[in-house]
Simulated scan of single mutants.
Amino acid sequence: MESRRDVFQAIADPTRRQIIEMLSRQPLNVNAISEKFDVSRQAVSLHVKILEECGLIVVKRQGRERYCEAKVDKLNEVADWVDYCRQFWTQQFKSLDKYLTNVQTQKPKK
């Protein structure tokens, strides 16, 4: 059984992030995507495959061409995680700030 890749794995690579950004503006075929990068068409196809496996893009056949279309709603998983971490760490830093303020205002013991 093949394990499905997750969104975090997809966005870990800068090339894949660029591909998602390009496809969020308009659907493109693999050749059009490849033209924008200094890597082989085969390397771009691998990136496209990973993005498709993660559910960030969908690939549709039109004749002999494969057109890629972004499905950025899947990025909500990342946004939710980032929001959770932001809230968690904001609370931690507020607690630390409060503690340090209390320590600084206490009179030293003789």
Results as ranks from 00 to 15, higher is better:
residue 87 Q to G: 12
residue 93 F to L: 12
residue 33 I to K: 02
residue 86 R to F: 10
residue 35 E to S: 12
residue 36 K to S: 13
residue 86 R to P: 04
residue 71 K to C: 06
residue 19 I to Y: 01
residue 93 F to D: 06
residue 78 V to S: 02
residue 97 D to V: 04
residue 20 I to L: 08
residue 6 D to Q: 05
residue 92 Q to H: 05
residue 49 K to H: 13
residue 3 S to F: 09
residue 87 Q to A: 11
residue 6 D to N: 14
residue 35 E to N: 10
residue 35 E to I: 07
residue 17 R to T: 00
residue 36 K to G: 06
residue 77 E to Y: 14
residue 26 Q to D: 06
residue 80 D to H: 08
residue 49 K to W: 09
residue 25 R to Q: 11
residue 109 K to L: 15
residue 104 Q to A: 15
residue 25 R to Y: 12
residue 92 Q to M: 09
residue 50 I to S: 05
residue 101 T to K: 14
residue 47 H to E: 01
residue 74 K to M: 08
residue 26 Q to C: 05
residue 57 I to N: 01
residue 102 N to H: 11
residue 86 R to E: 12
residue 110 K to A: 14
residue 107 K to L: 13
residue 49 K to Q: 13
residue 57 I to L: 02
residue 104 Q to H: 12
residue 71 K to P: 03
residue 63 G to A: 00
residue 21 E to V: 10
residue 108 P to Y: 14
residue 84 Y to D: 07
residue 91 Q to A: 13
residue 89 W to D: 02
residue 41 R to M: 07
residue 110 K to P: 15
residue 49 K to N: 13
residue 94 K to D: 15
residue 4 R to N: 07
residue 75 L to G: 00
residue 7 V to P: 01
residue 72 V to G: 05
residue 109 K to R: 14
residue 103 V to F: 05
residue 73 D to Q: 08
residue 36 K to E: 10
residue 33 I to A: 03
residue 48 V to G: 00
residue 5 R to I: 15
residue 8 F to V: 00
residue 94 K to S: 11
residue 31 N to Q: 12
residue 44 V to R: 00
residue 106 Q to A: 14
residue 64 R to G: 12
residue 29 N to G: 04
residue 4 R to T: 14
residue 109 K to Y: 13
residue 86 R to D: 09
residue 5 R to W: 08
residue 26 Q to K: 11
residue 48 V to P: 01
residue 86 R to C: 08
residue 3 S to Y: 10
residue 69 E to T: 10
residue 66 R to A: 06
residue 37 F to A: 03
residue 33 I to S: 02
residue 1 M to Y: 08
residue 33 I to C: 02
residue 8 F to C: 01
residue 17 R to P: 01
residue 54 C to S: 07
residue 5 R to C: 12
residue 65 E to C: 04
residue 74 K to V: 11
residue 9 Q to C: 04
residue 70 A to V: 03
residue 19 I to F: 01
residue 55 G to L: 01
